[in-house]
Amino acid sequence: MLMLTGEYEHTVDGKGRLFVTNKLRSQIDSEEYGSDFYLVLGANGILCLYPEKCFKKIALAGAPGTAAPDEAVAFERLSFALASKVELDRQGRLLLGDKIRRRARLSDSITLVGARDHIEVWNTEDWEQYLADNLAQYQQQMMQARKSVLQNESRELDL
């Protein structure tokens, strides 16, 4: 299972290229997940960089089973229209076109966020605001998750 983690601040250079840190790239086994990437406008308008095989699983899964036929068509259409197969250059840079930067509301100051099976590309100010808005809830959820793990481990020891 892919577990991309961390947050890394970068800037978009004058040619529109974004450096994808080796600290994230090295977490991806190219044999297992492919060596190419898909750049996708994802949930909440966040730009996402998916390893090839992770994106294919999502795109080919289609809309949720409860979706109406017209929603399924829209999901399929937009999943492929808003995705671009991209390659990183030898320095680990990715070209971000003006259209995708505009749609994702990206400035020159970018934060890359490891998000399990993909990398999210955030405008740094938006990422900081997201953290401020959600950190307290996350801390509560982490406390509950840790409590659950400890309880399960305690039960296993009692067996």
Score class of each variant (00 low, 15 high):
103 R>H: 06
58 I>D: 02
136 A>M: 13
62 G>C: 03
83 A>I: 04
83 A>G: 10
47 L>T: 05
8 Y>D: 04
117 D>I: 10
126 D>F: 15
21 T>C: 07
88 L>H: 02
85 K>T: 12
57 K>W: 08
24 L>A: 06
26 S>F: 09
52 E>K: 05
151 Q>M: 11
23 K>F: 11
24 L>I: 08
134 N>P: 02
77 R>S: 08
133 D>R: 14
75 F>T: 13
128 E>L: 14
143 M>P: 00
55 F>T: 07
99 K>R: 07
41 L>N: 06
101 R>M: 09
140 Q>N: 09
48 C>M: 12
36 D>G: 01
47 L>G: 04
60 L>H: 09
138 Y>T: 12
12 V>I: 14
137 Q>H: 03
150 L>C: 01
85 K>R: 15
140 Q>Y: 03
85 K>C: 11
112 L>K: 06
144 Q>I: 10
100 I>L: 09
33 Y>T: 02
156 E>I: 03
24 L>G: 06
50 Y>G: 02
79 S>P: 09
72 A>K: 05
124 T>C: 09
154 S>D: 12
145 A>I: 07
89 D>T: 06
73 V>Y: 11
113 V>C: 08
134 N>L: 05
3 M>K: 14
57 K>F: 06
108 D>H: 10
116 R>S: 01
135 L>R: 14
50 Y>L: 06
61 A>T: 09
93 R>S: 05
15 K>E: 13
44 N>R: 14
108 D>G: 10
72 A>L: 00
19 F>P: 00
35 S>P: 02
159 L>C: 02
53 K>Y: 07
31 E>P: 08
102 R>F: 12
90 R>F: 13
107 S>G: 14
59 A>M: 01
145 A>Y: 12
96 L>H: 05
90 R>W: 15
59 A>E: 00
89 D>C: 11
22 N>V: 13
101 R>I: 06
100 I>F: 11
59 A>R: 00
147 K>N: 10
20 V>C: 14
144 Q>W: 03
59 A>W: 06
4 L>V: 01
43 A>W: 06
73 V>H: 13
33 Y>Q: 02
72 A>W: 04
136 A>R: 13
108 D>Y: 05
110 I>M: 03
112 L>I: 01
52 E>R: 10
92 G>C: 10
140 Q>V: 11
67 A>N: 13
86 V>E: 09
1 M>S: 14
91 Q>F: 15
143 M>E: 04
27 Q>M: 02
39 L>S: 03
90 R>G: 15
82 L>H: 04
61 A>C: 08
63 A>G: 08
88 L>D: 00
153 E>N: 01
146 R>Y: 09
118 H>F: 01
1 M>W: 08
61 A>M: 11
27 Q>F: 05
107 S>C: 11
1 M>L: 11
18 L>F: 14
139 Q>G: 09
47 L>W: 08
152 N>F: 00
65 G>E: 15
100 I>R: 05
154 S>I: 07
126 D>R: 15
13 D>E: 01
103 R>N: 07
120 E>G: 08
158 D>M: 11
131 L>Y: 10
74 A>K: 07
145 A>E: 11
10 H>C: 15
155 R>Q: 04
